[in-house]
Amino acid sequence: MKDLHFILLLLRKEFLLEFRTRSAISGIFLYVISTLFVVYETFIKIQPNVWNTLFWIILLFVAVNAMVKSFVQEKGNRVLYYYSLLNPSHVLIAKIVYNTLLLLVLSLLIWGLFIFFGDNPVKDIGLFLLILFLGSFGFSVTFTFLASLVAASNQSSTLLAVLSFPLIIPIILMLVKISAHALRLIQDTAVSGDLAILVAIDLLLCGVALLLFPFIWRD
């Protein structure tokens, strides 16, 4: 119960910080809109199989850009203050939850803009929403943890992309495969198996990240 209390407090702190320094979040929103605009300017008409890949690639780049700053503010004296006060797992869980919610909102925004500019190729909306959540969670776990690793270096955004893109491949392959189902591009009865694998990968990475984070955080 006490854990939950701390996590909720930290989550509130994340929201407050984001709300007070609105420049970061508005930057990300603008990034999404201009990317989508460029995509439609150049493609004009997007086939469903291209749409499928494009959607997840755009979300991937948005996620890197949104998440690289996760630990940048947590530097110097403030870390020392947190360190004396908090349990590292709470910090990581709060960040992962916050980033998952942020990514979920961003992915809904991307989807909405895709519908606004073109049309909606998604046939199975429930399944697609489910994998939006699972994908946001998997991206959030991987990027948040890696952002905590690279926060101390001075070229963190390049480093984050280099480290995370190969690591994200298992997740993104599963996402593209399942979302092809939601778009009715392939007919296959093994969706539940694929979903189980995606959940397993997400949970595995989340567990490993939670185990390792206390070691990183201790500075």
Partner: peptide, 9 residues
């Protein structure tokens, strides 16, 4: 420390 954590991940 960072590399050990990344290696395990």
């Amino acid at each position: 420390r960072v590399c050990a954590a990344y290696g395990i991940f």
